[in-house]
Simulated assay, not measured.
Amino acid sequence: MKTLLKPLLASVLLFSTLVAGGLHAQASTSGKPVAISADNAVLLTVFLKHDQSRNLNEIRTKLTEQELFKVFPPEGVEIVSWTIAMGIGHVIVLRFPASRLREVNLAIERSAW
């Protein structure tokens, strides 16, 4: 079954971390999302690879059907930039607390992958 999912999400690249100890930021003990701050924020660049067999409208329709725009980005995740680059596809830069990396990854996997 040929879908947009496999070629769409090519890779996730950790662009820059601002956390001194890596991705081991402490989660909130109350279970509430941790706010973005200088000592726990990461920038993540996500590439949604261009699918040459479809035009931009077809790709957008497929992403809408998969409800990407309802679940991505999760609440509390900041979109720094969202660029559609010719020959590359969607290039999305996100900023969020390091402890929320799993949540961001799941949002992409469940809706764009």
Score class of each variant (00 low, 15 high):
residue 1 M to G: 13
residue 2 K to I: 11
residue 2 K to H: 08
residue 3 T to L: 14
residue 3 T to A: 15
residue 4 L to Y: 04
residue 5 L to R: 14
residue 7 P to C: 02
residue 8 L to R: 00
residue 8 L to Y: 01
residue 13 L to P: 03
residue 13 L to T: 15
residue 14 L to K: 06
residue 15 F to D: 13
residue 15 F to W: 10
residue 16 S to T: 06
residue 16 S to V: 04
residue 17 T to V: 03
residue 17 T to Y: 01
residue 17 T to I: 14
residue 21 G to I: 02
residue 22 G to C: 03
residue 22 G to I: 00
residue 24 H to R: 09
residue 24 H to N: 15
residue 25 A to Y: 02
residue 26 Q to N: 09
residue 26 Q to K: 14
residue 27 A to E: 05
residue 30 S to V: 03
residue 30 S to Q: 07
residue 30 S to H: 07
residue 34 V to I: 14
residue 35 A to R: 05
residue 35 A to K: 09
residue 36 I to S: 10
residue 36 I to A: 13
residue 38 A to F: 07
residue 39 D to K: 11
residue 39 D to C: 10
residue 39 D to R: 14
residue 40 N to R: 08
residue 41 A to D: 10
residue 41 A to Q: 06
residue 41 A to H: 03
residue 41 A to T: 12
residue 42 V to L: 11
residue 42 V to R: 00
residue 44 L to Q: 02
residue 44 L to Y: 04
residue 45 T to H: 11
residue 45 T to M: 13
residue 46 V to S: 03
residue 47 F to N: 09
residue 49 K to D: 14
residue 51 D to L: 01
residue 52 Q to V: 13
residue 52 Q to W: 06
residue 52 Q to R: 12
residue 53 S to L: 11
residue 54 R to G: 06
residue 55 N to C: 11
residue 55 N to Q: 05
residue 55 N to E: 11
residue 55 N to R: 04
residue 55 N to L: 01
residue 55 N to Y: 03
residue 56 L to A: 11
residue 56 L to M: 06
residue 56 L to Q: 10
residue 58 E to G: 07
residue 58 E to I: 00
residue 58 E to A: 14
residue 60 R to H: 10
residue 61 T to M: 05
residue 61 T to E: 13
residue 65 E to F: 06
residue 67 E to I: 01
residue 69 F to Q: 04
residue 69 F to C: 04
residue 70 K to C: 04
residue 72 F to K: 00
residue 74 P to D: 10
residue 76 G to M: 03
residue 77 V to K: 04
residue 78 E to W: 08
residue 80 V to W: 02
residue 82 W to H: 12
residue 83 T to I: 08
residue 83 T to P: 03
residue 83 T to C: 12
residue 84 I to M: 09
residue 85 A to G: 11
residue 87 G to H: 02
residue 87 G to D: 01
residue 89 G to C: 01
residue 91 V to W: 01
residue 92 I to Q: 02
residue 93 V to S: 11
residue 95 R to M: 13
residue 98 A to E: 06
residue 98 A to M: 12
residue 101 L to W: 07
residue 101 L to F: 15
residue 102 R to K: 15
residue 103 E to V: 05
residue 103 E to H: 06
residue 103 E to M: 09
residue 109 E to I: 09
residue 111 S to E: 05
residue 111 S to C: 09
residue 113 W to T: 07
